[in-house]
Design a protein around this nucleic acid. Structure first.
Lengths: 162, 162
DNA sequence: AAATATGATTGACTTTTTCAATCATATGGG
DNA sequence: CCCATATGATTGAAAAAGTCAATCATATTT
């Protein structure tokens, strides 16, 4: 990030602060919810990925690990549907997590085609650490919102995301 | 039918209804704002891209076109910063729009390295049509929220996106 | 039992992202 | 004014992510 002469003018010291970009903040595009959503997630997942890097994880693999640790015994198909990913991407993600000993593919007695993704003990430990990092990252990304605003945001997003 | 689990579905409420996926809605991950943001934007931009396809545009090119039409005379560097894209991606985007006669690269008298992206008359017409489509797409994606809720969402997102 | 559908997997292919290098032009310091 | 350094646009390469079709094993339907 460049550090222009006099950074930090207002409290809004996130990215793009202090340059001449405020001009574009007033455009119609900058007010579109879809645009803001895309930008928020870009900033958020960027930061989360950076911080998760120390665990050699990304938001994607963290999501899979999190669901594996959820107690809901998700199958790969369910992971694909829930995460809006192609089944082949789930294969790759699970391969990596399995290779590092974080999860296992368990047979589903009720459908032998299906593989349930379960965490190992090491996987649970990894998840605990990742969870803490994600919490920090999220906290930084949402720094401008108080708890109640975060609750409101969560609820609104939930209604358009599900 | 290309999109797996993305748009499509019935125009009404909850997609992914009726399968066994509700189970995962209760997980911690499903309550994380960052996860919901990612999912909302995935659904939203998926739908918008589908609908913009008839104009041979995507959300990306629409964004560039929109900023070009904003009256703010953005340079490519500013587009890159504002859209969080690599400068080389802007080159490609502008190339396409320029090739189809929607925008031009104007010299900036104050900095001859810089190129200001300006719309042509045809570009403005294209933008008008795209804007209408984006409005429809957005309206569908936000169907679960009333006007006031949309305002609230917009404001909350703006605060974390800028 | 046969036909059909589904979950996981592989491989090919396209698109998107990310980086390093280059050229032209600006800018700041002697 | 000249030099060193920084920046905007561009290209090209490489990595990552997303899309698709085909296959195998197992379920389900008829």
């Amino acid at each position: 990030m460049p550090a222009p002469t006099t950074a930090e003018a207002t409290a809004s010291s996130q990215p793009t602060a202090g340059n001449g970009l405020e001009r574009l903040y007033t455009t119609d595009l900058a007010s579109e919810i879809e645009f803001l959503t895309a930008r928020a997630r870009s900033l958020g997942s960027g930061r989360a990925n950076n911080m998760l890097a120390e665990l050699d994880l990304k938001v994607r693999s963290y999501s899979v690990l999190s669901l594996a640790c959820s107690g809901q015994n998700p199958s790969q198909r369910e992971l694909a549907d829930f995460l809006s990913l192609d089944p082949s991407q789930i294969v790759a993600l699970v391969d990596q997590l399995e290779k590092r000993g974080a999860v296992t593919r368990e047979a589903d007695p009720r459908d032998r085609r299906s593989k349930v993704i379960a965490p190992t003990a090491a996987g649970r430990r990894l998840f605990k650490r990742a969870e803490a990092i994600i919490r920090q990252a999220s906290d930084q990304s949402l720094a401008q919102l108080n708890d109640q605003e975060r609750e409101t945001l969560r609820d609104l997003l939930r209604r358009i995301a599900f």
